[in-house]
Structure formats: C-alpha cells, structure tokens
C-alpha cells in the first residue's frame, strides 16, 4: 500500500518518458544508416540506461553501466570504426 502512495503521477510520467526515449534511441541506433552515428546513439543509450538504473534504485549498476556500458564499450566501438575507415 505504502508503495502505491509513494508512486505518484509525476514519477509515472518521468518513467514513461524515460522508457520511451530509451526504446526510441535503441531502435534508432540499430537502423540509422551511418555507422558512426549509430555508435554515438548507442553511447547515449548507455547513459540513459545508467539513468534508468538510478530510477530502479540500483546505483551500483548505474555506476558500472556508465563506466563500462557507455564508456568502455563505446570507446572500443569508436576505435574499431576508426580502424575500419583508415583501412578503406
């Protein structure tokens, strides 16, 4: 019961908004024609994921996601795109 009360309209709107944007960015990064843009969108997706983990009361995952998911994975992907372009 207590949780019902704590979960008010403004949090609902915030969660809905974040969820929609999350999904939209993910979809966009899969279908956008330019590979570089796709990876940048993926890194934004990672940051939004970190925000989502904060909303889900999971700060440990938020830290890891921001550093590993968005940061390191993004760096690896961007570097590979650079390699791909240099070798063409």
């Amino acid at each position: 019961m207590e949780s019902e009360g704590a979960y008010n309209l403004s949090s609902l709107i915030l969660d809905m908004l974040l969820a929609t944007v999350l999904f939209w960015i993910a979809l966009k990064s899969l279908i956008t024609p330019d590979l570089f843009h796709a990876v940048v969108l993926f890194m934004i997706f990672g940051l939004l994921m970190a925000l989502t983990w904060v909303r889900l009361d999971a700060p440990d995952i938020a830290l890891a996601e921001a550093a590993i998911g968005a940061g390191l994975t993004g760096a690896l992907l961007l570097d590979t795109i650079g390699y791909l372009r240099r070798s063409h």
Partner: peptide, 17 residues
C-alpha cells in the same frame, strides 16, 4: 555503499584509455 571492485576497475580502465 554503492561502489566496489567492478566500478573502480572500470574507472581505472577509463583512465588508461
């Protein structure tokens, strides 16, 4: 509190990059 080996390691790795 939140934190620990994985997060610390990721930050170290980012510094290396």
């Amino acid at each position: 509190q939140p934190g620990g080996a994985f997060q610390a390691a990721a930050v170290l790795a980012a510094a290396g990059v």
